[in-house]
Design a protein around this nucleic acid. Structure first.
Lengths: 240, 240
DNA sequence: TCCCTTACGTGAAGTGTCTCACGTCCAGAT
DNA sequence: ATCTGGACGTGAGACACTTCACGTAAGGGA
């Protein structure tokens, strides 16, 4: 594991992050100050495991920089990616609030800057501030909608449709460079939609020949999102 | 659709249900009284659609009797069952709290007695009572854990393992008569785990020949749960 | 009582995806 | 400058599951 990055305490402004964050900005300046004094920051290198499934640690993480992969490894080594968490989002909120073991692994895909808030500090805050509780509930609702949609997709949609959908999601959501370039390996795409690397490759090559995208080592450049969106949105027919 | 059941207002004690319910019993007698006066009851016959995906109605349902199926229909008519809700549980909490359209269909599998609480009444309650908010968050956490596990299962486990697991879940959770008899059709089992009726039938017959269970019209009787539990728990190998 | 719908049982044929096997190319390490 | 591991490309074969087609049986309504 490379260590290109040193962990040196606070290297970004916790208060600013909290003030800008959709969940925490409902707090007044006073509570933000209080939270910021509790929270500590953490800088981790790409490849670091932030927590693993089964861990009992109960903290909330806010991503201040980088991308975190929420995934899950089966007994025979297969990986399933549930979600990618980017700047301004949070993760680990389930174990934070019910105190039970973590349901998945969290892995830093890139070098990451994280803010860590502990259950001991957060739960009293929620108890005293119903509006924070409601914000958290909103987060849970969004997660639940996302997860339900994932199940739906796996059960209902065929492979090209899911791939198109995932590609667009990655291009929109994740760390895509200026012109829709998504930095992700084909193997990782396979782990997100639960298919083999080879299958991903075959479909992507078909689309590359149609000039809808361009394949590079460690990345995909989406050239024309529209036909992909049509496939993704079509729901059933799925032309190819 | 038969109408063996008449809908005649309050035919069970709302207050008693609220007092006994894991979520609502944290409220004092006063708030229970207030909620009970807001909530109305509803009795629906088996087969009734309680709400459909895309509906904007924002109410919470508590099941006071019967079983409700939370499912989802694909464009080509396939059904996926996300969850079965039994006595003492609630459903519809996502749309209740974020006010967005329903993510799934809710269908009465049996004649059902429901209690309905509206967003207008519930949200102010949550705002005023952080402990209720925390209880709701617990419900969300449980849902999220269940849903994540479903995804894991679909992606990682092979067919017999999933079937064994589902069978045991049904026997424990659902409306099983005294000796592990589960009242469910093979088609419905297929919809829960996302496989064809024929595949379900073939595997069940293998197990029937081993005397692990007995098949009946509209039901499965689990005779010896232990070997099934072993298959379900095995995780990967999956003997058959 | 006779339908007629629904559920179960079962084989044959078709097919999508995985696995395996291989080769190529690139990037960073030594 | 070479080595070496990872990522991509691509075909052949295997196999699990689906679909289709059919038959049987049970229950409910007219």
């Amino acid at each position: 594991m490379r260590l290109r990055l040193e962990s040196h305490g606070t290297n970004f402004d916790k208060r600013a992050v909290l003030r800008e964050h959709p969940i925490f900005r409902v707090l007044g300046a006073e509570l933000i100050e209080r939270l910021a004094s509790y929270a500590h920051t953490k800088t981790v290198a790409a490849g670091t495991t932030i927590f693993a499934k089964g861990d009992v640690g109960a903290s909330l993480f806010a991503v201040c920089g980088g991308t975190v992969k929420i995934s899950n490894r089966s007994l025979d080594g297969k990986d399933a990616v549930f979600n990618l968490i980017n700047v301004g989002e949070i993760f680990g909120e389930i174990a934070l609030l019910d105190g039970r073991p973590r349901t998945a692994d969290a892995l830093a895909m890139t070098d990451c800057e994280l803010m860590v808030i502990d259950r001991r500090e957060f739960v009293p805050l929620v108890e005293g501030r119903p509006d924070v509780a409601l914000k958290m509930i909103e987060v849970f609702c969004a997660r639940l909608r996302h997860t339900s949609e994932q199940i739906e997709d796996v059960l209902f949609l065929d492979f090209p449709t899911r791939l198109a959908k995932t590609l667009l999601w990655l291009a929109k959501t994740a760390k895509s460079s200026p012109q829709g370039k998504v930095r992700i390996t084909q193997r990782e795409i396979g782990q997100i939609i639960g298919m083999s690397r080879e299958s991903i490759n075959k479909q992507l090559r078909i689309w590359e020949q149609r000039k809808w995208l361009r394949l590079e080592r460690g990345g995909v450049v989406v050239l024309s999102p529209d036909p992909l969106a049509e496939i993704a949105g079509a729901g059933q027919p799925a032309p190819d």
